[in-house]
């Protein structure tokens, strides 16, 4: 493998590719503008993010790629409105996160499936709709159709402990999709699955993304996963997290195992090696 300095990655992979507007009123689903963040630690503070700016164009799958300590989960939590930036601004669907964002238009998928063990698969999916407005019959109907979408219609009445890791992950995906979000935030959602199941989930996610106009922000430390999924990759360097590289990926799907995808993975890994970070690749 050749070690290429970062700027070469940009020229090699950033092929021009106009982003279609897809009729959305907001050009960007999420915008990070000069975002910085510190957390208190051991009496002092610890800088997590420094001056990070990038946009998530509407309808795109954007992968935030970075080693641990690059603050990628923090970025996601900012987009979800769970954490406020110390400096800069985060805009969601054209509104600042400290303003009036319609949070029901966001879905969130965690690193673990986070299913409530006392609820059946169906009731875990309806949970996302239990904020008062949707009548019960409609909640169940929508949850059932979402379970069908991820191929689990027959397991609606199963409890989480009766399901395999991949099935649980699908239930979690169904739960984050049942509100029909415009933006899906995903925090390494498949990192705990075995390689084969992960590949299936990637195909599933891309199929669902094709079917509905939805922006996805996908946080991962797995270079291959980012290349397989993303229309755009934002790479962060660690401690503090800074924007290292932003590039568009225009390779046709499916990408798994194709020569071009492998080349791009190689280039990105080379860039990471140049980053001098303890990144497991």
């Amino acid at each position: 493998m050749t070690i290429t300095p970062a700027p070469d990655v940009l020229t090699a992979a950033a092929r021009h590719h106009p982003v279609s507007g897809s009729g959305s009123p907001h050009p960007h689903a999420v915008s990070f503008r000069h975002v910085s963040k510190r957390f208190p630690r051991d009496g002092g503070t610890f800088e997590v993010l420094r001056d990070v700016s990038f946009d998530v164009p509407a309808g795109e799958v954007l992968a935030v790629l970075g080693p641990s300590g690059s603050g990628k989960s923090t970025l996601l939590n900012m987009a979800a409105g769970l954490i406020a930036p110390d400096g800069g601004q985060v805009m969601v669907l054209g509104h600042p996160t400290d303003g009036n964002v319609d949070w029901s238009r966001l879905g969130y998928m965690f690193q673990d499936d986070r299913l409530l063990p006392w609820r059946t698969a169906l009731d875990n999916v309806t949970l996302a709709l239990e904020t008062g407005r949707t009548p019960k019959a409609e909640r169940r109907e929508r949850a059932q159709s979402r379970l069908a979408l991820v191929g689990l219609a027959e397991f609606a009445r199963s409890f989480p402990h009766q399901l395999s890791g991949g099935m649980r992950s699908r239930v979690a995906l169904a739960r984050s999709l049942v509100t029909e979000p415009d933006i899906l935030l995903m925090d390494e959602p498949f990192s705990r699955l075995d390689a084969q199941t992960r590949t299936t989930m990637h195909e599933e996610l891309l199929r669902i993304h094709d079917e509905r106009a939805m922006s996805i922000v996908f946080v991962t430390h797995d270079v291959e996963e980012a290349v397989i999924l993303a229309d755009r990759i934002v790479m962060l360097s660690p401690r503090p997290g800074r924007l290292h590289t932003e590039l568009e990926v225009t390779l046709p799907h499916p990408r798994l195992g194709t020569k071009e995808a492998l080349e791009l993975v190689g280039e990105l890994r080379a860039a990471i090696a140049g980053m001098n970070a303890d990144w497991v690749i």
């Binding site: 769970l82 969130y108 965690f110 986070r114 409530l116 949970l127």
Partner: peptide
């Protein structure tokens, strides 16, 4: 973690 889930919802 479940409380955090409730926050995101």
């Amino acid at each position: 973690d479940f409380v955090e889930l409730a926050h995101t919802l």
